[in-house]
């Protein structure tokens, strides 16, 4: 994919500004490309499911994206947070350099597709009734998860990239931003366990 194939060497001939050293590791673009390639799969699968008018495929996409999103957050909040806390700052930064680009497109894509496909499913099954307290509960939790995603996760991820690209990256700041995201993943896991409780109720009753 050409979109991340910018080469600093080529840019050197265009702008003298890039002669300054950059802290951005060489593997960052490769991990971003991988993240984008995987991140595109869920929305494309949803488009296919809707195009062939298959409730089964849409349901499959919804359950798989929702479970993957929840699983990632539980893993991050319960397992990775403990591992990160036990590491020294330089080691945390090394993990962040790899974790941030790898999850950059995948997690927002999983979240957006899980929510969108959930709304289509609820509409198709005649359960999208805004007077229903269970639907309102699901909507409320989705709003919290979305605000956390757009307001904290994504900006922190971008700020980590920007810090890494600085002439003198601040390892303490990178570690702090990463730990903020890891802790937030733990709180997202709690909300997702709650939303699955709501989903289980909607599926059965």
């Amino acid at each position: 994919m050409a979109i991340f194939s910018h080469r600093a060497g080529a840019a050197l001939t265009q702008s003298p500004i890039v002669e300054r050293p950059t802290g951005l590791p060489r593997f960052t673009k490769g991990l971003l490309k991988w993240s984008f390639a995987i991140g595109v799969v869920p929305p494309v699968a949803l488009v296919v499911g809707l195009a062939v008018r298959s409730l089964y495929v849409v349901d499959y996409v919804h359950v798989l994206t929702g479970a993957s999103w929840t699983g990632f957050d539980i893993y991050t909040g319960v397992v990775l947070s403990r591992v990160m806390r036990s590491l020294e700052i330089p080691a945390r930064v090394e993990i962040s350099k790899r974790l941030t680009p790898t999850t950059f497109f995948i997690i927002p894509s999983l979240a957006a597709v899980a929510i969108t496909s959930g709304i289509y499913l609820a509409q198709e099954m005649g359960k999208f009734n805004l007077g229903d307290p269970w639907i309102l509960a699901a909507g409320g939790i989705v709003v919290v998860l979305t605000v956390q995603g757009f307001g904290v996760f994504l900006p922190n991820g971008v700020r980590i990239f920007l810090e890494l690209a600085k002439v003198k990256p601040d390892p303490a700041l990178i570690s702090r931003l990463t730990m903020r995201n890891v802790r937030l993943a733990g709180s997202q896991a709690v909300f997702q366990v709650l939303i699955i409780l709501v989903m289980a109720h909607l599926a059965v009753y």
Partner: peptide, 17 residues
Amino acid sequence: ELAYEGIVILRWALLGQ
């Protein structure tokens, strides 16, 4: 403080999203 590569990454990240 920030290399040009940081701006480029930011643009591609936005385009990807």
